[in-house]
Amino acid sequence: MKWVLTVALFFLRTLSGETNVPERILFVIKSSDTRVDQSDPKTREISFTMYGVNSKVSYFIDRPIDTGGTMTMDQFIAIAAANTETKNFKLDITAALHAQNGDAPDVDVPMRIMSIDYDPKTSRVVISGITTVGESLPAVGNVGESILIVSGLSSWCPSCIKNAPPKGVL
């Protein structure tokens, strides 16, 4: 009876995905200044330019291997483009922009990114996306220093796992 239960639980857990929790990789992109170029509360489309972007993108994987490192912006763009193409968009990545916005309240924009263009000569990144909040979109204009967090799957970047030593998990 015991082994029947064990086998049944194994298959059920596998079917439910409980033993296959997807690994999340987070990319962190920082800029010294940001400008919202276009925002439309009706369609929730937004486009913005990040200026003075760090040439290195930090990443970390939060499960099951707790590790991280850096890659170049070019590498990040290539990874994103190779892994996220969908029927509807060139890209389809969940991300969140946080900008400090001078004396005004901080700007927090969760979004689905549709396109990213990086110009290494000017250290500029131009992004367009669809926000997931219907209200209080930032108006066109400068919003200051910002950080963009991009959430993806660690399978996008096998070398990110291969090149980094595994750390213990709780």
Binding site: V21, L26, K30, K56, S58, Y59, F60, I61, D62, R63, P64, D66, T67, G68, G69, T70, H98, Q100, E145, I147, I149, A164, K167, V169, L170
Partner: peptide, 18 residues
């Protein structure tokens, strides 16, 4: 400056080595 907390409600943890 510019501090961000990444709080994972799953009982796992990440570390950046850069």
């Amino acid at each position: 400056k510019s501090i961000t907390l990444f709080i994972d409600s799953l009982n796992r943890l990440a570390v950046i080595t850069s």
